[in-house]
Design a binder for these strands. Structure first.
Lengths: 164, 164
DNA sequence: TATATAAATGTAATATTATAACGTTACAAT
DNA sequence: ATTGTAACGTTATAATATTACATTTATATA
């Protein structure tokens, strides 16, 4: 039932150009469908986030964005991030104050984020079963669940091999 | 198997004075056992954190601490927090940048934090089963798990009744 | 008990992350 | 064309967290 989402990215080198192209096209259609605007700024920031699978901070993102738009201010990044998160195209990793692109934004999903503490690559794992069980547990004690943050730190397969 | 930890606190009013006293005594013995020093500052900060079950921010804590120690600086709080977290007496809630006292620090535990978005009270739920299943899932894809952050936002029973 | 060592704290400065407030521009629905 | 809303520009500042280095306190043991 649960399964790895962006498994190509976890299995070593993948065609990242194709991965990005697909992500951005998918983003276009999601926004179109939702009737929200993926403006030039928002699209560019999504592109920067998705340019790797590493978690990236807002100010790091600002530095990259400024290569094209030297006068850009932090709030521009945060506004775009707010939008992208709202639409589900980006996730915030709370334990890092950093952001990753969502590779499966089209599917409604309940995921855990797996973060490699060595290379900072972050992956999403479909964890519906875990969500269901935690939601059930919380309801048993009359807690009404709304949203779940689940972040698993550790080492990806590549880095754990390297560090042996 | 999984169960609510500080269930008295979730079930409405409880004897908070007794709760605190017990938490602090327990903290003393944990530190003694580990051979680490629960200094006056550290004990006081733990006491402030545990003075309610609401998540509290570092600077809020600083304000409280300054009632006694007007010259205290942020780093004093952060140092104490680092210590208390290291020892397991306090947890950081990543999604709030805030802290709560741990009511069951003596037991090795794998917990989810339940956060009421209305009253900010936070509870710990033993979620060993969920940890195990997520760890197993991650290992299947050759990810080596180290630590898991699990934070469930929602409404506690009291607040969900009130908001009806 | 003196003293060496490590741990804890004091103090100042600064880095990092994020938001508020308010004006202007662009879009898109009538 | 007008008008209302969403997006963006600009400035300032709030909120969170760390670094660096000096000083004091506790602990072990000579």
């Amino acid at each position: 039932m649960d399964e790895l989402i962006n498994n190509t990215a976890t299995q070593g080198p993948h065609n990242h150009q194709a991965c990005m192209t697909q992500t951005l096209q998918s983003a276009e259609s999601i926004c179109a469908e939702k009737g929200v605007r993926l403006t030039v700024i928002r699209r560019r920031i999504l592109e920067l986030i998705c340019s790797s699978h590493k978690a990236i901070g807002a100010y790091e993102l600002l530095d990259l964005f400024r290569l094209d738009e030297p006068k850009a201010k932090p709030v521009t990044i945060y506004r775009a991030l707010d939008f992208l998160i709202e639409v589900g195209l980006v996730h915030k990793i709370e334990s890092l104050n950093a952001f990753i692109g969502c590779l499966q934004a089209e599917t409604k999903h309940q995921t855990a984020i797996l973060i490699c503490d060595e290379c900072k690559n972050a992956y999403e794992l479909d964890a519906s079963s875990v969500y269901q069980s935690l939601f059930a547990m919380s309801k048993e004690i009359q807690f009404t669940p709304a949203s779940l943050t689940m972040e698993l730190h550790g080492l990806c397969s590549t880095c754990s091999k390297t560090l042996k």
